[in-house]
Amino acid sequence: MSRPVVLEVRGLLKRYGGVTAVDGVDFTLHENEVLGVIGPNGSGKTTLVNLITGFVKPDRGKVLYRGKRISGLPPYRVALKGVARTFQMAKPFYQLPAYKNLVVPLSSPRVHALAGGSYGDRDAVAKDLLEEVGFERDSWVINKAAASLPHGYLKRLELARCMALRADLMLLDELFSGLSLAEVASMVPVIDKLRSRGKTIIMVEHRLRELFRIADRVLVLNFGQKIAEGTPGQVMDLPAVREAYLGSEAEVGDA
């Protein structure tokens, strides 16, 4: 692949007491690639996201973003470089209306600099972004406090927040979990659109069918170790993957 390298993860290791949550993981991510990360519960997927975004400090190994080391930086510095993430359990600013949740990232110095030194009409941009992720424009939902939004909207809001920060690399931690089939179907085109705009995306997912349709490459974790990496087709045929999944996850049948 001739596209520039966006993210390099080298020998990343994190121990919690006697448990090695992430055990020497390596991978490289190129610009505009969509990487899926799968694995059974407790295989280290979320810890990997936390390590890359600075929420957890690695015991060993390093993370390079566009050639510069970001492991060891605090999360807010990583975010300002253009690496955004979502949370598995949606974490909005509960008391703010949905669109005001986006005014916070839209007020970031990063957005200010990228927009050529102006914030523009932040409320309007926020509402545009919400519409893009599937909020009905001019409906009550965009003005409703995040605390009272239904789950599906909260997940959309998580994604919209990354978009508002104008992140180049987005780490989406189980964005589809808890969504209905119809909701997932409406989110897939949004991810596709982000890819067409040149974004690089890491998706941690349990919804394998949808993930395999979107992802260029899939990385499989088990007990913190990378046990496979390849195209969705290659990965699904590997016996180790079937074993890891069938060993602990009954849901693979309908995934």
């Binding site: 975004t53 929420f55 605090p74 999360p75 807010y76 510095r77 975010a79 300002l80 955004a84 993430r85 949370f87 974490k91 909005p92 600013f93 509960y94 008391q95 703010l96 916070v104 990232p105 970031s108 110095p109 990063r110 927040r161 920060l165």
Partner: peptide, 17 residues
Amino acid sequence: RAIAQDEHTALTLGINT
């Protein structure tokens, strides 16, 4: 106000909490 409501989310948005 942002960190009062969710410190982790504020961090992901580049706020030095």
